[in-house]
């Protein structure tokens, strides 16, 4: 995980649910990526680029436990999300997959679509490079930061299982 993120903003409103992010009818289809968030912004699936970020209002990711939501954003190149608040399961899934979900009070008022932002994991400050305005994000607890820095839950689990395997083998010898 980079200590500093610089990226172009895609902007969304409040209560962006998991069906809007990954519509049910495209789940499991290779075409899913062409429909991510399309009802909210038809440009998004067409023009999103690696290194872009999402800014949104409150309750981002509400709805289903569908992990396809943060997963699709990650696959499309999104490197972080900056929202007023998140729905619980989405937040867990995003941490688990290694996509940093930042909580930034006031973010939906200060940043617009197409703005460039810079964010530091040292200070948790988010800067709008167009306006120069700086916002303070909530610090992600170390406990969860470790999961993000470890590349997500699956990678960490794999390490643990490999360790377990080593122990099993050592016992045999």
């Amino acid at each position: 995980m980079d200590k500093v993120i610089k990226g172009k903003v895609w902007k969304f409103g409040d209560d962006i649910d998991t069906d809007l992010i990954t519509p049910g009818k495209w789940l499991g289809s290779p075409e899913l990526k062409d429909h991510v968030l399309e009802t909210e912004d038809p440009d998004f699936p067409k023009q999103v680029q690696k290194g872009d970020v999402i800014v949104a209002g409150k309750n981002f990711g509400c709805g289903s436990s569908r992990e396809t939501a943060p997963e699709a954003l990650l696959q499309m190149g999104i490197v972080a999300t900056f929202c007023e608040s998140y729905a619980r399961i989405y937040y867990r899934n995003s941490i688990g997959l290694g996509l940093p979900p930042l909580i930034v009070p006031g973010v939906s008022k200060e940043i617009e679509k197409g703005d460039e932002i810079e964010f530091s994991f040292e200070t948790f400050k988010l800067k709008n490079l167009r306006t120069g305005k700086e916002l303070q994000a909530e610090r992600i607890p170390d406990f969860l930061l470790e999961i993000l820095e470890g590349g997500g839950q699956e990678k960490i689990l794999k390490k643990k299982l490999k360790q377990k395997l080593k122990e099993l083998r050592a016992k045999k010898e």
């Binding site: 867990r92 688990g96 839950q153």
Partner: peptide
């Protein structure tokens, strides 16, 4: 939970 947490 999601399926990554489900796997863990």
């Amino acid at each position: 939970i999601g399926d990554t947490d489900g796997t863990v």
